[in-house]
Amino acid sequence: MLRFIGRRLLVMIPVLLGVLIIVYALSCFMPGDPVINKLGTQNYTQEQYDAMEHQLGLDQPFVVRLGSYLWGVVTRLDLGESYATNRPVTESLAQRVGVSIQLGLMSLCLAGILGIPIGIFSAVRQNTIPDYTITTLSIILASLPGFWLAMEAILIFSAKLRILPASGLTSWKHYIMPVACASMMTLASLVRMTRSSMLEVIRQDYIRTARSKGMKETRVIFKHALKNALIPVITVLGNQVGMVVGGSIIIETIFNIPGMGSLMLSAINQRDYPVIMGVTLVTSVFVCICNLVVDIVYSLVDPQIRSQFVSGKKRGGKEKTEKEAAA
């Protein structure tokens, strides 16, 4: 198992390097000029421009800049300084990341706590009125644009009813709308995924075997079907956890929340390359780690995968090839 984790961590290095290089190149070649942004005016002299360009290090060729940036990251964990604020990027990331993780995890948990049971319920009651209602609602929910949902929520709860604050993040009340809106989008897809995965499992022969043993339907569902049905759901949820770190640009902007998403948006607007790179780097590290964690969790649920890790039990591998042969 440890060897497996070690190998996966090693594989992450080229992946992350690749992501950094691509994003660096993309942001350098996108239209707009950070020097002008930084000067803040159209009335500048050539000298002023050159001085600023030199100060930001942008007078050097692309490859040299990329090289020194990567060198800084690898040797000193130095992500550079923001063009806009002149403060180290790590500092602004540290300030912001907590908020995004908090919001993201809360909304994911909410989506999971609601979505999985609703999905199961809908599957067990397949083709009844509750099932039709749930399926229809989740399709509608999934097709609503996120910003529209958030705006409507603000209109209703802040502007009309005046019971919830529309922006900021200072009391628990501030959390309600952003978390609810963010979770709605995940919720819809989670319900539909759990439902279809559960339906798939219920048709399997081993469920028929379980029923023929004479157990209650609840035991059939929870003891025999659930674990199998959750395997694909875990994968999707796990990948979402990784994305949480990047924050939600839409939700954070609309509710005016100081998280990674709004940081990214302003950085893009100001051509603040170091910040763009910083957000990208942190997000991709987390996505990679979460993928690894998903694979480990996966192995706890699915014994077929677990036996690949546990080197002591060689038998698993052998039987596998025999099964392939029979097929």
């Binding site: 028929r208 029923r211 023929s212 699915d302 014994p303």
Partner: peptide, 26 residues
């Protein structure tokens, strides 16, 4: 009564052993 009967008085062996057992239980 049906549940009490299934598995206790009548039991069934299904055709395909590859799929008749639950993969996540020992």
């Amino acid at each position: 009564e049906l549940r009490a009967m299934r598995g206790d008085e009548i039991s069934m062996i299904f055709q395909d052993p590859m799929t008749a057992l639950n993969p996540v239980l020992t």
